[in-house]
Nucleic acid binder design. Structure first.
Length: 398
DNA sequence: TATTCCCGCCAGGCT
DNA sequence: AGCCTGGCGGGAATA
């Protein structure tokens, strides 16, 4: 349950303590995005990011890996990443979808919203999975069938059982557990199937196949939390609850929205949602039990329980595609200094870029629904861009 | 009590 | 050898 914000926990009343919310990965990610999502940014140094954000490098790696897996960044060299920006997301997602389909990932079994993770193989790769409780999580079913067709990026041939020849099975094994790959597979759960809502437990099960043991599951779920936090900052997903069970779950937002007019909705104030990442204080490294002297500042987020139920109506955060965090983003006391001035001066991206992109990159889905979906994405982005382009600079909140 | 997820150890790879 | 990466899981904060 992490969903609702308690009210008082982090208020100043807490003289003491450490509040994990202030150091959440999601918040850090939001700050990261705010820091670099602007014109003129091309490369990002990890040290620089760590310094500016006041966190250790280790945390930056987590963020960067997830962002890279959805296209926002790409690695340029050691310690250096290239900022691709949000505009790269549609393409990255489309590629994932395409790839997932090729892998038959998430092919639905006809019935309803269920995904069924492939018995991937069919010809080349035999289904490895499950047998061994040997412990190793069976390399994700998803990746397993990438043999051969896999291409660079985070998607690599994986399952050692399947691709046994590989010399570096060790590093393959490491890679197949990588946060980046897991992120992509997690995203595929949504974009390659009609699943709209899934709990991290379920996601872990799906991603692990059936032969999971509890420890492996637990670890995987922890990672999924990390990923979910970052994706939430990107507003690619949002946290809600499953209707009946009330179990916490994540809903895919993707790039939809705005299609069905959501103009009425208030811009997604990042602060309206429960533990929405990205709204609170920035990260800095205080030890867990150290005094939390920033406490009071962010307290104000009185949140309301997420109204999950009305899922869709949830006004679509028209903002979502408006791109996350960057605008009306709030920093806490440790906000990167450079950000404030920067935020307001970024918003003009030519729509035609999008058009080019759309026309150059128009995957040939065999399935009409998918084609529509792609077009849908593109439209959403176009309107977002044009909207921004026509607006005066935003104001910095706080 | 269960869920969420920060934190930092430490192994593997690279320079 | 030293630095960079990043998997991993303990255990504390939160719900």
């Amino acid at each position: 349950m992490a969903a609702s914000p308690p009210s008082m926990s982090e208020t100043g009343s807490k003289h003491h303590t450490y509040s994990r919310k202030q150091k959440s990965l999601g918040l850090l990610c939001s700050n990261f995005l705010s820091l670099y999502n602007r014109d003129g940014v091309d490369s990002i140094g990890l040290d620089d990011a760590a310094n500016k954000l006041g966190v250790e490098r280790r945390r930056i790696y987590d963020i960067v890996n997830v962002l890279e897996s959805v296209g926002v960044l790409s690695k340029r060299a050691k310690n250096q990443y290239t900022w691709k920006g949000f505009k790269a997301i549609p393409k990255a997602l489309a590629a994932l979808r395409d790839e997932g389909l090729r892998e038959k990932f998430g092919s639905s079994d006809g019935s309803k919203g269920e995904f069924k993770v492939v018995d991937y193989d069919e010809e080349t790769c035999s289904n490895p999975d499950i047998g061994s409780q040997s412990e190793q999580l069976n390399p994700t079913i998803l990746t397993a069938n990438q043999c051969g067709s896999c291409h660079g990026g985070a998607l690599e041939p994986s399952n050692p059982n399947v691709m046994k020849s590989s010399a570096s099975s060790k590093s393959d094994s490491r890679r197949e557990k990588s946060l980046g790959l897991l992120t992509q597979n997690f995203a595929k759960l949504f974009i390659c199937s009609n699943v709209d809502l899934i709990s991290l437990d379920e996601a872990a099960k799906v991603l692990l196949g059936d032969g999971h043991n509890p420890l492996v599951m637990r670890t995987k779920v922890r990672r999924l939390y990390d990923i979910a936090n970052v994706l939430s900052s990107l507003r690619l997903i949002e946290k809600t609850h499953q209707a009946e069970t009330r179990k916490p779950a994540f809903r895919w937002l993707g790039l939809r929205e705005r299609t069905e007019d959501s103009t009425a909705c208030p811009p997604v104030s990042t602060e309206t949602k429960k533990r929405t990442f990205g709204t609170e204080i920035s990260n800095i490294s205080f030890k867990r039990n150290k005094v939390d002297f920033v406490g009071g500042e962010d307290a104000k987020q009185t949140k309301q329980q997420v109204k999950i139920e009305n899922v869709e109506s949830e006004c679509n955060h028209s903002e979502q595609d408006k791109r996350p965090v960057s605008r009306n983003y709030q920093y806490g006391p440790f906000a990167p200094v450079t950000v404030a001035k920067v935020i307001e001066q970024k918003n003009t991206k030519p729509v035609h870029d999008l058009e080019n992109l759309a026309s150059t990159y128009h995957p040939q889905y065999h399935n009409q629904a998918l084609r529509d979906l792609f077009d849908h994405y593109v439209e959403a982005w176009k309107s977002w861009y044009s909207e921004i382009a026509g607006k005066p600079p935003l104001q910095q909140v706080s």
